[in-house]
Write a protein that binds this DNA or RNA. Structure first.
Length: 570
RNA sequence: CGGGGUAUAGCUCAGCCUGGUAGAGCACUGCGUUCGGGACGCAGGGGCCGGAGGUUCAAAUCCUCUUACCCCGACCA
C-alpha cells in the first residue's frame, strides 16, 4: 500500500476532550473520528486494526467449535418482555418504534434472540451441546459515554452462547471458551489476566473476566503472588484478621473534636493512625431505615459486598444528611457505633480492633478507647471492605497485589434463567423435558483496540503488538523527489515485500523526513525501512523496530528475508 | 438525573466583563526557498459567532428560551 492511495489522517494537536491516552492517540493517529456522543466512525487505518482483532477472535471461536451466525441488531420488544428485561434493563436499552408503532430495541446483547432461535431449532438432547457466536454491533445507551471507543455507546462485540443438557457439558464448553479467550489475547500480543468474577452464590468458576493489564484501567484486580488466585477487587474476599481483638487497655473517653469531619481531620487532631479508628457509614436498608456500616479508618467500603447483604437496599444508597440527623441526632462526621439505635454491621477488620476511636453521635465529639463488648455490642460482622495491596490471599496462599485492568472479555454460566423464561427446552434421553443450560461469552472487539493502545504506547505514539498492527512495515524513502535511485529502490522494495505477503506501507508523498518519521511512529507501524541516497550507494538500507534504540543497516538484497525473520519473531 | 462548563474558520482557541471593522496558531491553495526528526517566506481562500426570540440607533458581546457537546457526582463519617 502507498500513502498516496491510503491517506493518513493524523493530527498534531491533542484533541481537547480526549482524556485517556488511547483515545487521544486513536484520534491523532487517524483511527477513529467522533460522530456524536459515544458514536465513532472507524477510518480505514483503524478498521484494519479492528479487522485483525476480529479475525483472531473468529479463528479461535471456530477452533473451539463454535458456529458463527449473525442475528439482527434490531430486536422486537416481545422477546424482551418475555424475560422481563424490557422493564428491568432500564434506560440503557435504546428503544424505538417502527411505522406501525410496534416496539423495538437496538440490541445491547442477544440472549433473548439466541434463546428464541434455540427453542425453535433445538428439540433433542442429541443436538447438544452446541455453541453459536456472532460479531455484531451493539448499542448501550450509557449515561456517560467517554474514553472514546473504550466506553462507547455503539461498539463491536463478539458474543457466544452455548446450550447444554447437563452442568458437566456446560462446564466443559465453559472451560474450552476460557482457553479460547486466553489464546485470543495471547495471539493479539496483549498482557492479560483472567480473573474470577463469581456472582456471589456457589462461588467457584462460574464467571471469569479477562482484563488487559494497563495502569489506566478502570477496574482493579487483585491477584495472589503465590497462587493463581485472581479476582476483581469488588469480589475479592477480605479475610478476618487472625486472633481477634486484643484485650482492652484504655477507658472509654468522650473528647471534644470541634470541626472534625473526616478521618484525615481526626488523625491530624489526635495524632493517631487511621487504622486505629473506625468510620461509620449510613446506608438505606430495604425498609428505608438507615443501617450503619462500620469499617476501619484506613479501609474503604466495598459497595458490591455491602449491596449483597440481606436487608440492604440495592442499589446501595447512602443516607442523606437530613435523614441521618433525624435518626441519630448528629451529622456525618460524628457517627459511631456506640449507643447507635439502628442496625450496625461491622467489618471483620474493624471488629478486630481494641481501644479504637469513633464518632460519638454528637456533633463535635468522638470517643477514644472504645472496645467491642465492653462499650458497644458487637452484634453483626461481615466482609464489607475492599481488599488492599498486601492483604492475605483469600485462598490462603500468598498475599494480594492490586493491578489495574481493562475488561475486554467476560464468560459466564447462565444456567436456565433464559431458557426457562422463554420455554427453550429439549427432550432428554429418558423422554422427559428440560430447559437447556446456557453459557454466555463476550469479547469487546472494539474495546480491545483501545485497550491495546492503552497498554502499548510511548511518548511518540502507538506501539502496536505485531499481530494487530495495521501494517507491518513502513518504507520511507528520503528525498525521493531528488533521487531516481531512491524512488526506484523504494518502489522495488515495496513490491518485493508485498509479493512476500508482508503488509507494507510505502510513504510516497515526498514529505519531509521528519514528517514521515513522526507519523509512522504515531500510527505505530512495528518495523521501519529508511532508504537514503548515501546508504543506497553502499547497497544498504536502514532498519529500525518501533521500540529499538538504534537502527541497523541491511543489504538491499537481504531486506525481504531480514524482515521475514523479524516478523516471524513476534 | 443533579451540579458545573463550553459552543466564534476544517482543528485548537482568543475576542464577550466594558455593545460599534471578526482575529491568532495549526490545517488548506499558489509561488519560491528548503529537505535524516512534525521547515521557512510571500500571497491567498475560508465565518448566518450553535438555534430562536428579545433589548438597542447598533448584538459574537446584554437578557430569555432552546439544542448539542464536555467535565464532576460512594470512598465522607
Amino acid at each position: 500500500m502507498r500513502t498516496s492511495r491510503f491517506p493518513l489522517n493524523t493530527v498534531k494537536e491533542t484533541p481537547a476532550d480526549a482524556e485517556i491516552v488511547s483515545h487521544q492517540l486513536m484520534l491523532r493517529a487517524g483511527l477513529i473520528r467522533k460522530l456524536a456522543a459515544g458514536l465513532y466512525t472507524w477510518l480505514p487505518l483503524g478498521l484494519r486494526v479492528m479487522r485483525k482483532v476480529e479475525r483472531i477472535v473468529r479463528e479461535e471461536m471456530d477452533r473451539a467449535g463454535a458456529l458463527e451466525l449473525l442475528m439482527p441488531a434490531v430486536q422486537p420488544a416481545e422477546l424482551w418482555q418475555e424475560t422481563g428485561r424490557w422493564d428491568k434493563y432500564g434506560p440503557l436499552l435504546l428503544r424505538m418504534k417502527d411505522r406501525h408503532e410496534r416496539d423495538y430495541c437496538f440490541g445491547p446483547t442477544h440472549e433473548e434472540v439466541i434463546t428464541d432461535y434455540a427453542r425453535r431449532e433445538l428439540k433433542s438432547y442429541r443436538q447438544l451441546p452446541i455453541t453459536y457466536y456472532q460479531i455484531q454491533t451493539k448499542f448501550r445507551d450509557e449515561i456517560r459515554p467517554r474514553f472514546g471507543v473504550m466506553r462507547a455507546r455503539e461498539f463491536l462485540m463478539k458474543d457466544a452462547y452455548s446450550f447444554h443438557d447437563s452442568q458437566a457439558s456446560l462446564q466443559e464448553t465453559y472451560d474450552r471458551m476460557y482457553d479460547a479467550y486466553a489464546r485470543v489475547f495471547e495471539r493479539a500480543g496483549l498482557r492479560f489476566r483472567a480473573v474470577r468474577a463469581a456472582t456471589g452464590e456457589i462461588g467457584g468458576s462460574h464467571s471469569h473476566e479477562f482484563h488487559v493489564l494497563a495502569d489506566s484501567g478502570e477496574d482493579a484486580i487483585a491477584f495472589s503472588d503465590t497462587s493463581d488466585y485472581a479476582a476483581n477487587v469488588e469480589l475479592a474476599e477480605a479475610l478476618a484478621p487472625a486472633g481477634g481483638a486484643p484485650a482492652a487497655a484504655h477507658e472509654l473517653e468522650k473528647i471534644a473534636t470541634p470541626g472534625v469531619r473526616t478521618m484525615d481531620d481526626l488523625c491530624a487532631k489526635l495524632g493517631i493512625a487511621a487504622a486505629a479508628g473506625v468510620k461509620t457509614l449510613m446506608v438505606d436498608g430495604d425498609d428505608g431505615a438507615p443501617v450503619a456500616l462500620v469499617v476501619r479508618g484506613d479501609h474503604e467500603l466495598n459497595t458490591v459486598k455491602a449491596e449483597l447483604l440481606d436487608g440492604i437496599a440495592a442499589p446501595l444508597t447512602f443516607t442523606d444528611e437530613a435523614r441521618i440527623r433525624k435518626a441519630v441526632g448528629a451529622g456525618p462526621g460524628s457517627l459511631g457505633p456506640v449507643g447507635l439505635k439502628v442496625r450496625v454491621i461491622v467489618d471483620r477488620a474493624a471488629a478486630a480492633l481494641a481501644d479504637f476511636t469513633c464518632g460519638a453521635n454528637a456533633d463535635g465529639f468522638h470517643y477514644t478507647g472504645v472496645n467491642w463488648g465492653r462499650d458497644v455490642e458487637l452484634a453483626e460482622t461481615a466482609d464489607l471492605r475492599r481488599v488492599v495491596d498486601g492483604d492475605p490471599s483469600p485462598d490462603g496462599r500468598g498475599t494480594l497485589s492490586i493491578a489495574r485492568g481493562i475488561e475486554v472479555g467476560h464468560i459466564f454460566q447462565l444456567g436456565t434463567g433464559y431458557s426457562s423464561a422463554m420455554g427453550a427446552t429439549v427432550v432428554t434421553e429418558d423422554g422427559g423435558e428440560t430447559p437447556m443450560l446456557m453459557g454466555c461469552y463476550g469479547i469487546g472487539v472494539s474495546r480491545i483496540v483501545a485497550a491495546a493502545i492503552e497498554q502499548n504506547h510511548d511518548d511518540r505514539g502507538i506501539v502496536w503488538p505485531g499481530p494487530i498492527a495495521p501494517f507491518q512495515v513502513a518504507v520511507l524513502p528520503m528525498n525521493a523527489h531528488k533521487s531516481d535511485a531512491v524512488r526506484a529502490a523504494a518502489t522495488d522494495l515495496h513490491d518485493a515485500l508485498a509479493a512476500a505477503g508482508i503488509e507494507v506501507l510505502l510513504d510516497d508523498r515526498d514529505a519531509r523526513p521528519g514528517v514521515m518519521f513522526a507519523e509512522m511512529e504515531l500510527i505505530g507501524i512495528p518495523h521501519r525501512i529508511v532508504i537514503g541516497e548515501k546508504g543506497l550507494a553502499a547497497g544498504t538500507v536502514e532498519y529500525k523496530g518501533r521500540q529499538d534504540a538504534e537502527a541497523v543497516m541491511v543489504k538491499v538484497g537481504d531486506v525481504v528475508e531480514f524482515l521475514t525473520q523479524q516478523l516471524s519473531g513476534n
